[in-house]
Amino acid sequence: MDTQSRELNIGWIPASGFQLRKAGVQFDAVRIEGEEGRRVAETLEAMTGGDPGPIVVESKGVRAVYFLVPAGSTSFRPWPRGVTTFNSGPGKVSYVPVPALSGETWPVAWWRPPIGEDRFVHPVLLKCVAEGVLV
């Protein structure tokens, strides 16, 4: 682990590069592809004074944006079209790319890194912003 992740004591962040983490354990995730995902991230950032919670972005392919939300918060919640949820349950396993806090992590990076072990994007706020952007 690097010093920043040790200071934060966040065991699910890799020391280098990036790793896939099973959704539904420490967090669930909501993925929105392309420019829409970036607009949602920008809107959340503005609404929260620059502290929307942890957000991961991809720089190739569909350029997806992953919003890390509390574990169990994406199931049984209707999400707008264009949103993919990552969680775990009976017969379902999902994985989310998680980059290290520093060093080479291409093709994924933190839009906003976590500031604490249990600090995530607020799922209701995320859903409301996504509904406004993805109309």
Rank of each mutant, 00 (worst) to 15 (best):
W12C: 10
V40D: 04
G61P: 10
V65L: 04
M47W: 05
R6M: 14
K22C: 08
G72V: 04
L20C: 08
Q4T: 12
V108W: 02
P107T: 10
P54C: 04
W79P: 00
N87V: 02
G37F: 03
S88F: 01
G132T: 05
P114Y: 06
T85Q: 09
G37R: 02
G50C: 10
L44V: 00
T84N: 09
F120S: 03
A15Y: 13
C128D: 13
R63N: 12
E45W: 06
T43Y: 06
L68N: 01
E35C: 02
R38F: 12
G34A: 08
P90T: 12
E117C: 03
R119C: 05
V57E: 02
P90G: 15
S59H: 13
Y66K: 08
S5V: 05
V98R: 00
A46S: 15
L125M: 15
S88W: 03
T74W: 03
I55N: 04
V30Q: 00
G61W: 07
V108M: 06
V93I: 15
S75L: 12
V83I: 13
R21V: 09
L125A: 15
V40I: 15
G50A: 09
R119I: 14
S5L: 03
Y95F: 13
Y66G: 02
K22M: 13
P107V: 11
G49H: 09
A100E: 06
R63D: 04
F76Q: 13
W79E: 07
W79V: 09
R77M: 13
R39F: 01
Q4I: 05
R119V: 14
V57G: 00
V65D: 01
F67Y: 08
L8I: 11
S73N: 10
V30E: 01
S88L: 07
P123S: 10
P114H: 00
P123L: 08
F76H: 13
S88N: 10
S94G: 12
D2A: 04
L44Q: 03
G72Y: 08
R81G: 12
V57S: 00
R119T: 11
R31P: 02
V96D: 01
T48R: 04
R77E: 14
R63Q: 13
E131A: 14
E131F: 09
C128K: 11
F76R: 14
I32A: 01
G50N: 06
R39W: 00
